[in-house]
């Protein structure tokens, strides 16, 4: 154990000392008012259809339950490839997100389709395991074929002020990912304030995250529009400072098509059209897809849809 710590310290020393990123304080009232104001936009007809189809392509269709089986993952993958049986213009989704043991099943189903396989790792969802185990978790998931890794930060370290440790773990996880994209889950519901969210976002981006992500989906509150806005502004400032585009993934609690459209408005108004692509924006969701499909069918048929007419994944 002490050897592991020693080697981590040695590696950190190689990279030089940890320099805290410049973080600006968050105006809580402004952020909440702006997020609420942007949620008032009314998006209808052709614009709504275009927005919803984009939302489908941005979706990380997720199943993260203890009762997941290969069969369930296979049916989820089938839905990911062709969400609406009779309409090939809908989908495929951006990625399928599963636990490491389910990665080989998903890779097998999605081969050649362009749909990414994302895996949670680093002792998801708490992240409270020794770093060596967390890194091993990542390497195995990548070895199984995952090309996107969703890691969790050590919230305990973040809240106790051990920012160097948070930073260092992300750096090492990024190394362990190799070619795989790294999404860093901040678990904003446990961070307590927008200032900590902003700080954690800045640390994650400085440490090499390709995406920053709100939540595991295991903690309430999960993604909320204001918290997403704080993170989007962090991404914007990082882009101005470095020219590097970091992706954003709100996850957890996004269940309706209307919510999804409001998130797209937030992105458009904060980061612009460049981010309105599955390469830079994803929704982490499991029940959202069906609601989006129901709304698309509503627009096509003019009849309100029933949940019983759509597969449960």
């Amino acid at each position: 154990m002490s050897n592991l710590v020693a080697s981590a310290t040695a590696r950190a020393a190689e990279r030089g000392p940890y320099i805290p990123p410049r973080t600006s304080p968050v105006d809580q009232i402004f952020v909440e008012e702006r997020a609420a104001a942007l949620a008032k936009r009314s998006i209808k007809k052709a614009t709504k259809v275009a927005g919803l189809k984009l939302a489908v392509r941005m979706m990380d269709l997720t199943t993260l339950e203890g009762k997941d089986t290969p069969g369930k993952v296979r049916s989820l993958c089938a839905k990911a490839l062709r969400p609406l049986e009779h309409d090939p213009s809908v989908g495929p989704v951006g990625a399928v997100c599963v636990y490491p043991n389910m990665v080989p099943v998903a890779v097998d189903c999605l081969r050649g389709s362009g749909v990414h396989v994302a895996s949670v790792a680093t002792a998801f969802p708490s992240g409270l395991s020794p770093l060596a185990i967390k890194l091993d978790d990542v390497r195995r998931a990548v070895g199984f074929g995952a090309d996107e890794i969703d890691m969790v930060i050590d919230r305990g370290a973040m809240l106790s002020g051990d920012y160097a440790r948070v930073y260092d773990e992300i750096v090492q996880t990024k190394e362990a990912c190799g070619h795989a994209h790294l999404k860093v889950i901040l678990e904003t519901g446990e961070l307590g304030s927008y200032d900590v969210v902003r700080h954690a976002s800045d640390i994650a981006m400085a440490a090499g995250a390709d995406f920053i992500k709100t939540s595991t989906g295991k903690v309430t509150p999960a993604a909320t529009p204001p918290v997403t806005l704080v993170m989007l502004e962090a991404i914007r400032d990082h882009y101005y400072a470095t020219g590097k585009r970091i992706g954003m993934k709100p996850a957890g609690g996004i269940r309706t098509a209307k919510q999804a459209l409001h998130y797209l408005v937030l992105v458009k108004e904060t980061l612009g059209d460049a981010w309105l692509t599955p390469e830079l924006f994803r929704f982490g969701a499991s029940t959202l897809l069906n609601d989006v499909l129901m709304q698309l069918e509503k627009e096509r048929t003019q009849a309100y849809q029933g949940a019983d007419y759509f597969s449960k994944e």
Partner: peptide, 8 residues
Amino acid sequence: PHLARHME
């Protein structure tokens, strides 16, 4: 009419 069309 919208209730008559509604699938639920």
